[in-house]
């Protein structure tokens, strides 16, 4: 009986480890998205500050390609929307992982208590 529980605990611990790993990865990803969103925000502010006839270029590979200011602003806005959606997705993912972690931890404590009880009896 005790061995069975121990085996179960081992398994649960492994699952917990992999979820924690995934969790850290998700958090890092979210941070990256956050910084991208911030950069885009700064760019949009800058584009809005420009005069209507100002020339805007986009770096594509090693060359600068002239862009329409209107188009560039729209592009950045679209990208911001996309990143915001991605951030929301990442947030959901993170909270789901958090819940999973909590459930697993609870399970583990229960198993541990059971094990201790059995050991105390033996």
């Amino acid at each position: 009986m005790a061995e069975e529980i121990q085996k179960k605990m081992q398994k649960e611990l492994e699952v917990l480890g992999s979820i924690q790993k995934e969790f850290r990865k998700a958090v890092a990803q979210k941070q990256q998205l956050d910084s991208q969103l911030n950069e885009n925000k700064a760019v949009k502010e800058e584009l809005l500050l420009l005069k209507k006839d100002a020339e805007v270029y986009k770096l594509i590979g090693p060359v600068l390609v002239k862009q329409d200011l209107e188009e560039a602003t729209q592009n950045v806005t679209k990208r911001m929307e996309y990143i915001s959606k991605e951030i929301k997705r990442a947030d959901d993912h993170i909270s789901a992982l958090e819940n999973k972690q909590e459930a697993l931890q609870e399970n583990l404590t229960k198993l541990k208590n059971n094990l201790n009880k059995i050991k105390a009896k033996a």
Binding site: E39, N40, A42, V43, E46, L47, L50, A54, E55, V56, Y57, K58, L59, I60, L64, Q67, A72, V76, R79
Partner: peptide, 13 residues
């Protein structure tokens, strides 16, 4: 001058 304003965009100022 051309200024790098981020995310690959350059603006003339």
């Amino acid at each position: 001058v051309l200024i790098d304003i981020g995310t690959g965009y350059y603006a003339q100022k």
